[in-house]
Design a protein around this nucleic acid. Structure first.
Length: 271
DNA sequence: TCCCAGGCTCTCT
DNA sequence: AGAGAGCATGGG
């Protein structure tokens, strides 16, 4: 990877097959938006980022320091996805999926944001998930230069479900509050989840009311970078019954979550 | 309008 | 243990 510094931005080259837009908007994160100039805007870890891609050139409107300690890792730019996709090509469906949308990386989101976002995602559609999360940030987050931060768990833990009425999250409001309380009082231990095998995280997260297998897997994959987590939603369920009635292919062992992300996006963007 | 959405809880067998 | 209804809301 090559980084060229300028006054107010940096240019990055030789980053492999990464696709910024696809990664930002393939249903794993809900806060990235593209403006009329093709520039992506997002906020993570309390920092606002503007970034754009022109083929094999990425522009980050931030300092080289911030890129090094935050965004390089957030966008998982040092993992060799072409090697992973090459492994996937042993399976004909996975080959189609990675060929159709190369460049998807798993975004390393904040654990709390991932948990909260996927609680909101249940029995919901992506445009509305984005709306609820936006209202959550506007109502309870902190204002920064480019928007609002994601409100942390302690901030929400002191609220009652009714206080979330402005979000129009429906029955999910009580789940968000239960999650906020259990995370901020340590009943659900993020540090231990991060440093334990995936099975521990599965059990720990499902202590929260409103968190079942699917939300737990999503949180582990996108919030804790447990790349073998395997979220099964209605789309992946279709894929499994149509293409893998006898089980998932061996070539995805250890990185099933990444395979799932390619298949999910592929299946969803067909027609 | 009506169906359905990156599911989960609760209840009834 | 397994199946099914109900859930809040609104996008398409």
């Amino acid at each position: 990877m090559k980084i060229i510094k300028s006054d107010n931005y940096i240019t990055v080259k030789d980053f492999g097959s990464f696709d910024l837009g696809l990664s930002a908007d393939c249903g794993q994160a809900f806060r990235w938006k593209k403006d009329e100039n093709g520039i992506w805007h997002g906020i993570a870890y309390g920092k606002h980022l503007k970034a754009k891609q022109n083929g094999s050139e990425l522009t980050f409107y931030t300092s080289a320091e911030e890129f090094e300690f935050l965004w390089k890792d957030y966008f998982d730019l040092e993992t060799d996805y072409s090697a992973i996709c090459k492994r996937f090509s042993a399976d004909k469906n996975l080959l189609k999926a990675v060929t159709c949308c190369p460049g998807i990386h798993i975004l390393k989101q904040e654990p709390w944001e991932a948990l909260c976002s996927f609680i909101i995602s249940q029995n919901n559609n992506i445009p509305r998930i984005k709306g609820i999360i936006e209202r959550l940030c506007e109502t309870f987050g902190d204002e920064t230069d480019g928007g609002f931060t994601f409100p942390d768990a302690p901030t929400l833990a002191v609220l009652e479900p009714d206080d979330l009425a402005p979000l129009r999250a429906g029955f999910r409001a009580k789940y968000i509050i239960d999650a906020a309380r259990k995370v901020s009082n340590g009943e659900v231990d993020f540090y231990k989840i991060k440093n334990s095998p995936i099975e521990f995280g599965r059990e720990e997260l499902q202590k929260i009311c409103g968190v079942g297998a699917k939300v737990a897997e999503c949180t582990l994959l996108y919030g804790f970078y447990k790349v073998d987590a395997f979220p099964v939603d209605v789309w992946v369920k279709r894929i499994m019954s149509e293409m893998y009635p006898d089980g998932f292919p061996e070539c995805a062992d250890g990185v099933k979550g990444i395979a799932q992300q390619y298949l999910f996006h592929w299946r969803r963007t067909q027609n």
